[in-house]
């Protein structure tokens, strides 16, 4: 390399339009992508009369690209717009927005580095409490058999387990890998765990609203994992292309990005 003769300077981003190290322009773009993907439904929520948007597949990706805070803002804003422009995919609007924010925030803290390396811990406790409230209410108050409740919440507890165990940091490492195939594996694993805890966050609230009976729990046992596979597929396909593209063009990386 040619050795420059000038004094090396410390490069810093001074003020300007950035939130938590992510340029506002990125947040706007990803919020727009989330909003656009809210138009496309992929499944019907029983009893609630709405549907899921395909955008759910990229909430984790938004967190990995922007970091926890900027990611939560982008997904939250995008989902909020989606609630209005695509109400057919927002059965319970407030829950849709909240869970989108939780999804991107959780994804953003996965890398466990620097000053934020312990952020995953209170989040895990929060998810465990949500799970206890969700499944506890089903079993104790509504009389759902423990077997049906645990099988029906497979996605939720698998998400918590993967998030609490070193699989969280393993997925984050894979996302940073040079090989795009390994990145794809990280996207799949990461999307599964984050979509799991996001689902739990939404399901806990909606269950308190509608208290679906055991028959519904049983029916959901095969459906929920299949739906989540679809989310993972969306996250993996879109995420692989986006991360490969971002790396190729060498665009500035937000400070808290995981990829």
């Amino acid at each position: 390399m040619t050795i420059p003769s000038g004094e090396e300077r410390k490069v810093k981003f001074l003020g300007g339009a950035a939130i938590d190290g992510a340029p506002v322009a990125y947040i706007v773009v990803l919020a727009a992508v989330v909003a656009a993907l809210c138009f496309i439904p992929f499944s019907v929520i029983l009893a609630l009369g709405g549907s899921f948007p395909i955008a759910q597949g990229i909430f984790p990706l938004v967190g990995w690209i922007l970091g926890p805070i900027a990611g939560a803002i982008a997904s939250g804003v995008g989902r909020l717009i989606g609630v209005f422009v695509a109400p057919h995919t927002a059965a319970v609007p407030a829950v849709s927005v909240w869970s989108a924010m939780v999804g991107s925030f959780s994804a953003g803290v996965m890398k466990s580095e620097g000053k934020r390396k312990s952020w995953w811990l209170p989040l895990t406790i929060f998810f465990i409490l949500e799970f206890l409230l969700f499944v506890g209410r089903a079993i104790v108050q509504n009389g759902v058999s423990p077997r049906a409740a645990f099988a029906g919440s497979f996605l939720d507890w698998s998400g918590i387990l993967l998030f609490a165990l070193p699989t969280r940091t393993l997925a984050a490492r894979w996302l940073r890998h040079k090989n795009i195939g390994v990145v794809a594996a990280g996207l799949f694993l990461g999307t599964w765990m984050i979509a799991g805890v996001t689902h739990l966050t939404a399901a806990m609230i909606t269950y308190f609203m509608s208290n679906w009976p055991e028959d519904v729990w049983v029916m959901l046992i095969p459906i929920i994992p299949v739906e989540n596979l679809f989310r993972c597929l969306v996250g993996t396909v879109i995420g692989s292309g986006v991360i490969a593209g971002l790396r190729a063009i060498g665009i500035v990386k937000p400070t808290e990005a995981t990829y």
Binding site: S5, E7, E8, R9, K10, V11, F13, G16, V252
Partner: peptide, 21 residues
């Protein structure tokens, strides 16, 4: 370099303002 990051050497000024400061 403020938006792109990277490594910057030397000094650039515009109307007396250092572009890194």
């Amino acid at each position: 370099p403020q938006f792109f990051g990277g490594r910057f050497f030397g000094h650039a000024t515009v109307v007396g303002l250092d572009t890194l400061d």
